[in-house]
Every structure is written in C-alpha cells, then in structure tokens.
C-alpha cells in the first residue's frame, strides 16, 4: 500500500506545528530545544515524502544535511546552556531576563 503524499505532508505539518507551539509555550530551555528538533524532524519527513513522490534523491540528500545541522546545533546549544547554568543555576527562560528594562 502506498501512502498518499498529502498524508505525509499533513503529518509533517502537524508535527511542525507541535514543535512551534512547544517553542512558544514551554519555559525550560532544554524542552524548547527539543521542540526545535521536532520541527527539524518534521521537515525531514516532508523532504522524504516529496523525494519519494518525485522519485529523486535530492530530498534525501537534503535530509542528511539537515540531520548534520541538527547534531551540530545540539553540540553548540548544549554548550551554551551549560555555560549559562553554571552562572545562573537555572535553565528556565522566564528567570533569564537580566536585560528587560
């Protein structure tokens, strides 16, 4: 059975929206980061779906690049979060507001 393209894209859009809502409403920096990863994986799903629809490998190659980026971003992101935690003992973004004036 072949899953129709529309279903794949709809699922990908739902996952993407969940990711966006997570970024907007969660307060823990790590959870926000996980939501961003969810957004990137929704993108991967859409790319793979389109790639299969067009029978071309372009989309799949793109997926590899996105995965590489996601890994690099986690490395940099966790380093920044740890540096912050060492100084402030919190990763709640509501408490990270020294610059509000």
């Amino acid at each position: 059975m072949v899953v129709p393209l529309e279903h794949v894209i709809a699922l990908s859009m739902i996952l993407f929206s969940i990711g966006v809502l997570g970024v907007l409403f969660r307060r823990n920096a790590i959870t926000i980061f996980m939501s961003i990863e969810l957004m990137l994986n929704a993108v991967n799903l859409a790319l793979v779906g389109f790639s299969r629809y067009y029978n071309s490998v372009d989309g799949q190659v793109f997926v590899f690049l996105v995965m590489t980026l996601a890994a690099a971003e986690v490395a940099v992101g966790l380093a920044i979060i740890i540096a912050l935690y060492r100084n402030r003992q919190t990763v709640n973004i509501d408490e990270i507001n020294l610059m509000k004036n």
């Binding site: 970024v23 961003i36 993108v43 992101g77 920044i80 979060i81 912050l84 990270i96 507001n97 020294l98």
Partner: peptide
Amino acid sequence: NESGLKYLLLGAFATG
C-alpha cells in the same frame, strides 16, 4: 550567556 541562549533558541527556531 543570556544573549547567547536567546540567539541560539530564536536562531534555531528561524532555521526550522
């Protein structure tokens, strides 16, 4: 630290 975290989160969000 704080601006690094803010830039990272919003930048990655934009990347999405």
